[in-house]
Design a protein around this nucleic acid. Sequence first.
DNA 1: ACTTAATATAACTAGTCAGGCATATAGCTG
DNA 2: CAGCTATATGCCTGACTAGTTATATTAAGT
Lengths: 103, 103
Amino acid sequence: MKAQVFDLLADPTRRRILDALRERDRSVGELVDLLEISQPAVSKQLRILRDAGLATVRIDAQRRIYRLTPARLLELDQWLAPYRAFWEDRLNDMEKTLNSMED
Amino acid sequence: MKAQVFDLLADPTRRRILDALRERDRSVGELVDLLEISQPAVSKQLRILRDAGLATVRIDAQRRIYRLTPARLLELDQWLAPYRAFWEDRLNDMEKTLNSMED
DNA sequence: ACTTAATATAACTAGTCAGGCATATAGCTG
DNA sequence: CAGCTATATGCCTGACTAGTTATATTAAGT
């Protein structure tokens, strides 16, 4: 049901959808025009994003308007944090090495 | 050859390997003990990480010691940046709404 | 109610991929 | 070099998944 955020982002189509929704809310039809795949394929990915909590729908006549809900992307940010620390340490080490070489 | 960073992170085994390498450099054997899968399976994932530029090997007798090279994780960080902007806007909007409700 | 528009679901299929086992390769030790 | 240790590669299989077509559903307009 609630997939890992990593799995969600692994698919390029889903990433394109997220990118599009970041700009503004979009109907399914708009997304179909944008991506070049069938309408059912788009609806399927939208369902996955919805189930995962990355998007919400609102109804506008026959249209369904999708909106990005980025909360779960915080998980990515959190996962990344210790790696960020890691690579900053690496840079500091290199700096130190350079400085000691100057002596 | 050089896979998308998203695809690399989609696999839980690879994430566990990265986590382990973040702590310290590790031989293949250590990783095999840690994860509970066969040695060939571990070697396979290590090859993928190596090819993707997320790890490097150095030789120590028969052992191969793997080290994390986190540079490519910056790609994630960069991908995430506009979404970060997006969700911060969202939070600001909510704040404004709350403030106006106080009036 | 009947028709058209917009979207969702179902069933199927082709491609991908992680893991298992067997085997090859590389490096040490006696 | 024989035998042992550590790792890599090849081949196979089962599981998963994104897309396709066909069909169902939902909502509007006439």
